[in-house]
Nucleic acid binder design. Structure first.
Lengths: 159, 159
DNA sequence: ATCCGTGCAAATGATTTGCAAGTCG
DNA sequence: CGACTTGCAAATCATTTGCACGGAT
């Protein structure tokens, strides 16, 4: 944890930005809630718990900065807000998401899975792929199990 | 063209909505600019050319309605606006996009390309895929050619 | 002193909503 | 009549910006 913070500090310095207390608090919240896909407001509220003096605008500015430096990715699931997601350690590419249309949960997929598809796109459309965004919408494992409870599966469910 | 409009009219009626003149004008604009990824404002301006009395709110309401009925897809490329894209005739799935990070152009890919990936996701994550959204960010063919002009490629480009 | 970074409040821009009036079966 | 639609203006919500102050070099 601490070493990831150190690394981010170096990345900031490399572009001559400082890791101010506000920025550090913001990054810490991101690190501590890595799998949560927080919105700017979410981050703001969490940062505020430990550093009540911080302003919302500062959080926005910090998230924008981190996005520029590709330390986080700004994502959008179609609700009205942007969400911010830390990049994995050495990930060249963005990771994928599984959004459940029933319970709204979001799972992450770290595996690339798109190597083959990218080759096809580069060949067939002559498009030089730099990054991608892939989201699947569907029903998560938990919700599927919920359904089975309601309507218990028999050997021969049809009719 | 006309038959697609007819089809949409039926889809509306099936959910007991009418194809009012305003809605028809909006749908026509979408049909006539099918590959353009128009924002609500874009649609509004285009509709206004032929039907100046229409209100922006009506366009928003129509687009929302069409989205609900899955006649169009609401997409978001990360600029501040939502864009609206007609679904292909019988497409169960959403088509993909190639967004050029240099000139901003957007190409569409109708091919699925994700069959294999979806099988993996369903197996490995036990996630029942219903739809997907895939966008590649990179450099389009035209912009690549622009680069070659500036810096003509020799047999041995290095050094 | 100079810059960078911050907080606050005001501004912006996209989208939504309330409501009174219109349409059409 | 009565449900569905509309246009307009006002409201809302996320995000951005202007600006004067504060802290570090």
């Amino acid at each position: 944890m601490e070493n990831r913070l150190e690394k981010i500090k170096k990345q900031l310095h490399a572009s001559s930005y400082k890791l101010t207390p506000q920025r550090e608090a913001t990054v810490r919240v991101l690190l501590e809630n890595e799998s949560d896909h927080l919105s700017a407001e979410d981050v703001y509220l969490l940062v505020k718990e430990k550093s009540p003096e911080i302003g919302l605008a500062t959080v926005y500015r910090t998230l924008e900065l981190l996005t520029e430096l590709k330390i986080v990715d700004k994502i959008n699931f179609g609700d009205g807000v942007s969400r911010y997601d830390l990049r994995q350690e050495g990930a060249a590419h963005f990771h994928h998401h599984l959004v459940c249309i029933e319970c709204g949960s979001v799972e992450e997929i770290q595996e690339d899975l798109l190597e083959d598809v990218e080759v096809i796109v580069e060949k067939r459309w002559k498009f030089q792929v730099k990054d991608h965004r892939l989201t699947f919408h569907g029903i998560c494992h938990r919700c599927q199990k919920e359904h089975e409870k309601e309507k218990p599966k028999t050997k021969n469910a049809s009719i």
